[in-house]
């Protein structure tokens, strides 16, 4: 049984549909990236999956419990880092954690051990007696993550864990996520930081009110665009444009920045023939390489398509 299994999960606020017909399965131990622009419905999704708000329609199981029937059990089984850290400013770091440890019904010895463990892990042990009101944004975020982990949940929801952090704090948070992954926990990570999702996640869902695409980062990159070959010459590239266009298996060719950009019908088998044809025509080929698309380009393309599709849907 998957750790999280959503079927047609939908949430509307009045007329506005915030999350539309979301279906996916997340395996145990998977790091699942949930990527979308601000206002795409990521927080609403996390709130639904953690039983904070009810879906308008659809069904979902989390940690084997049915959402809407076993919310109390779901809350106990998962850890949540909410959109805002939500720590008590007038309590010390330690008091904040001990409070939540008591709510999750850890016995007092385990509570103290866990609190110490995570405060050390987050590098906050020396500041444990300081009021959270005096903490920096990064320290708060680390403390809030510690709070989400205290009761050793098997499923952890992290809603924008690095948003608004300085690069150093963001790196610490990413290291924490990596180590959680090493412990075999299931992680649901929302973000609008592509690089972060690319680095950390096994699979990525690109989301904007609807699920636009769901795959591994590598497949996402490969699946959306053709592979393009970039060929550099000793001299200008323009003269060779006509040569390659004449070849029957070249789909597209253009010149960008003195570099010839070519798409082939079957890249793997046709690339050698392409180079041979150029060399035979007298070209001095200096360098040949494949263009790598960043996840960002994939993402922007999908979000744009998603927006157009949404617009079409609205107009029809």
């Amino acid at each position: 049984m998957p750790a999280i299994s959503a079927r047609g999960l939908t949430r509307a606020f009045g007329e506005r549909v915030a999350v539309d017909n979301l279906t996916f399965d997340i395996a145990h131990g998977e790091v699942f990236g949930f990527l979308g622009p601000n206002g795409a419905g990521k927080t609403t999704t996390v709130r639904m999956l953690t039983g904070l708000i009810a879906p308008t329609s659809g069904a979902c199981t989390v940690a084997g419990y049915e959402l809407g029937f076993d919310n109390q059990r779901i809350r106990r089984a998962v850890g949540v880092l909410t959109e805002t850290p939500g720590l008590y400013d007038k309590l010390s770091a330690e008091q904040n954690l001990l409070f939540y440890a008591a709510i999750y019904e850890l016995d007092s010895r385990t509570a103290r051990e866990q609190v110490q463990h995570y405060l050390r892990m987050m590098d906050l042990w020396d500041r444990r007696e300081h009021l959270v009101g005096t903490f920096s944004k990064g320290m708060r975020q680390k403390l809030a993550i510690a709070r989400a982990l205290l009761h050793n949940p098997q499923i952890v929801f992290l809603d924008e864990p690095t948003a608004g952090l300085d690069p150093e704090a963001a790196n610490v948070v990413r290291d924490v996520i990596r180590s959680l992954r090493g412990e075999g926990r299931t992680i649901f990570l929302t973000s609008h930081n592509l690089h972060e999702v690319d680095q950390l996640c096994d699979r990525v869902a690109i989301f904007r009110e609807r699920l636009l695409r769901l795959d591994t980062p590598a497949n996402l990159r490969a699946g959306l665009f053709d592979t393009q070959h970039l060929i550099e010459f000793a001299g200008a590239a323009e003269p060779w444009l006509a040569t390659v266009r004449a070849l029957p298996f070249v789909r597209e060719a253009s010149v960008e920045d003195r570099v010839l950009v070519i798409s082939l019908q079957e890249p793997a088998s046709q690339k050698p023939a392409l180079i041979r044809a150029l060399v035979e025509a007298g070209a001095e080929v200096q360098n040949v390489q494949d263009r790598q698309y960043s996840l960002e380009e994939v993402y922007l393309q999908l979000i744009r398509d998603g927006a157009t599709a949404g617009l079409k849907k609205e107009m029809s």
Partner: peptide, 14 residues
């Protein structure tokens, strides 16, 4: 106002 309510509601508290 201090935005501490959401984690509290997300915890197993009735």
């Amino acid at each position: 106002v201090s935005r501490t309510l959401e984690p509290l509601l997300a915890a197993p508290l009735r």
